[in-house]
């Protein structure tokens, strides 16, 4: 069976603090997902989670690599950053909890919904964080999650 063949691979660098192009990687991913032909509701949840992961790097980290593998019936995303790490993951998952500074919040970012949006929209989420080194986020999205 060839069902687990990668259809498209995307790997992009994200630069911390670069709010000008923030969202570009997720935008590119959206276009690719549409081209592959996944249903809009599936694409939307992948894109929401991808955007939050991308923005976390822009807001909190120095740089990161955003890598996606698109299969026929699933999408795998890994976002690996060099940054401060997350001191308390449990707290970070609480809606409304954020360590973003005020000037970031004024722009409507860093409201403390990133991780919970990622959790709600993905079928599998794993976060590996090392203080002072960085954070790696791994997410999987299945076209038929109940399988």
């Amino acid at each position: 069976m060839e069902e687990d063949k990668v259809l498209v691979e995307i790997e992009r660098e994200i630069v911390g603090g670069d709010f000008q192009s923030a969202g570009d990687v997720s935008g590119e991913l959206k276009k690719v997902l549409q081209q592959v032909g996944f249903p809009p509701s599936f694409n939307r949840r992948v894109v929401i989670a991808a955007y939050e992961a991308e923005m976390n790097v822009v807001i909190h980290a120095y740089r990161g690599i955003f890598a996606t593998e698109i299969y026929e019936d699933r999408v795998h995303i890994e976002v690996d950053d060099q940054g401060p790490g997350i001191p308390d993951l449990e707290l970070a998952f609480q809606e409304g909890y954020s360590t973003a500074p005020p000037h970031i919040r004024e722009m409507g970012f860093g409201a403390g919904y990133g991780l919970s949006n990622m959790k709600k929209c993905s079928d599998h989420l794993e976060i590996d964080t090392r203080i002072g080194e960085g954070t790696k986020v791994v997410m999987d999205f299945f076209l038929n999650p109940e399988k």
Binding site: F19, Q20, A22, G23, P40, R44, V47, I48, Y51, E52, M55, M107, G108, F109, A111, Y113, G114, N117, K120, C121
Partner: peptide
């Protein structure tokens, strides 16, 4: 709040906001 909009706004909507930065 961008996280709220990305999660809850529906495709094809008009978006009313006071944010005006590129994101």
């Amino acid at each position: 709040l961008l996280s709220d909009c990305i999660a809850n706004a529906k495709e094809g909507s008009i978006w009313v906001t006071i944010q005006s930065h590129p994101n």
